[in-house]
């Protein structure tokens, strides 16, 4: 079957940004989700939280302007926005666990039909890294997963049951991949949007559980 092109990480980040409209306090996971901060539209009053103790993370620091004491949880030199605050790790996770964040964007290895998330350890490995993912998955009011639709060897990452160790059960609200936007609803997974050049049938082909197809639209033009 001839498929469309996979969207770039930047385009995915733009689509994830739309998912956060109306959210005020958002934590971006380490890695790909951090790209999302570059795509929040002007005038949106989003404050980004970094779990190492910053509320109000700004853009990355310009070369030569880095401060050794100012970095995000992924060890990148950042800046802070007006109105930012610093806090210790316990207070930072009070925010997260206490339900004070509107949303988090996390990367994933696998998401199940029920919205289970697996993103901290690969099967067969002795160790992994929880980081703050278990806390964010359990505490944020909305969990947005941003991941490639399939593995490097083209196997589905959206599966009936996660075979990778779980981060949290039934926590994911929406999955933005490089070809689709899929929401976790009561009956299962609903295909909501397709990336340019993709049909629902082609997306189903790369997805293990049966997708609910009711009102599928194309990604907004502003994204791609």
């Amino acid at each position: 079957m001839i498929m469309g092109e996979m969207m770039s990480d930047e385009i995915m980040a733009r689509r994830v940004a739309l998912e956060l409209s109306g959210d005020c306090f958002v934590n971006l996971g380490i890695g790909m989700p951090m790209l999302v901060s570059n795509h929040m539209g002007q005038g949106k009053q989003v404050m980004f939280q970094a779990e190492n103790g910053i509320l109000g993370v700004g853009p990355r620091a310009e070369p030569g302007m880095e401060d050794k004491d100012l970095g995000n949880a992924g060890d990148e030199h950042v800046t802070v926005s007006a109105g930012a605050s610093f806090m210790d790790s316990a207070t930072s996770f009070d925010m997260i666990r206490g339900g004070h964040l509107d949303a988090t964007v996390l990367g994933a290895f696998q998401v199940s039909e029920k919205g289970d998330l697996a993103n901290w350890k690969l099967p067969g490995r002795k160790l992994g890294s929880y980081g703050g993912a278990m806390d964010l998955a359990a505490g944020a009011r909305k969990v947005v997963v941003m991941m490639k639709h399939v593995t490097n060897d083209s196997r589905p990452r959206i599966v009936r049951e996660c075979s990778y160790p779980l981060t949290a059960k039934q926590c994911v609200s929406v999955i933005v991949t490089d070809i689709a936007v899929i929401k976790v609803v009561a009956e299962g997974l609903e295909l909501c949007e397709t990336a340019p050049g993709w049909t629902p049938a082609q997306i189903q082909e790369l997805t293990e559980p049966q997708l609910i197809v009711r009102n599928v639209s194309a990604w907004p033009l502003s994204v791609s």
Binding site: A90, G128, Y130, G132, A133, M134, D135, G139
Partner: peptide, 13 residues
């Protein structure tokens, strides 16, 4: 190695 979620680690401390 005892792996602990980050917020749980902070709160345990």
């Amino acid at each position: 190695v005892e792996l602990v979620p980050q917020g749980t680690l902070a709160e345990r401390i």
